[in-house]
């Protein structure tokens, strides 16, 4: 794998479904995402593939409330 694609992978995000959240977790409702971030979030979910950090305003560790709760993770 080239350095460039390594870099992209390192700087991408994927989503993990979680059952519950702790008091310390940062949580946002999906309606707090801007249109582009919502688009990327939805693509990540439906295509089950990571999205590039550059495209989205999603912080690793935060949980997004959608049809389930999804934790944003570094890929």
């Amino acid at each position: 794998m080239s350095m460039a694609s390594c870099d992209i992978l390192r700087r991408s995000r994927h989503l993990e479904r979680v059952e519950s959240v702790t008091a310390e977790t940062t949580v946002r409702h999906v309606d707090q995402l801007d249109t582009e971030t919502l688009d990327a979030f939805y693509r990540a979910l439906t295509a089950d593939r990571p999205v590039s950090e550059a495209d989205v305003d999603l912080e690793p560790g935060e949980v997004i409330v959608f049809t389930d709760y999804y934790r944003v993770a570094r890929t």
Binding site: V21, A23, T25, V27, R28, H29, V63, V65, Y69
Partner: peptide, 19 residues
Amino acid sequence: YNRILIKEHAKGKLPEAPI
């Protein structure tokens, strides 16, 4: 506080602090 998350608290799914 996050008015659009209080429903998740009412559902019993989300603790108070993240709201």
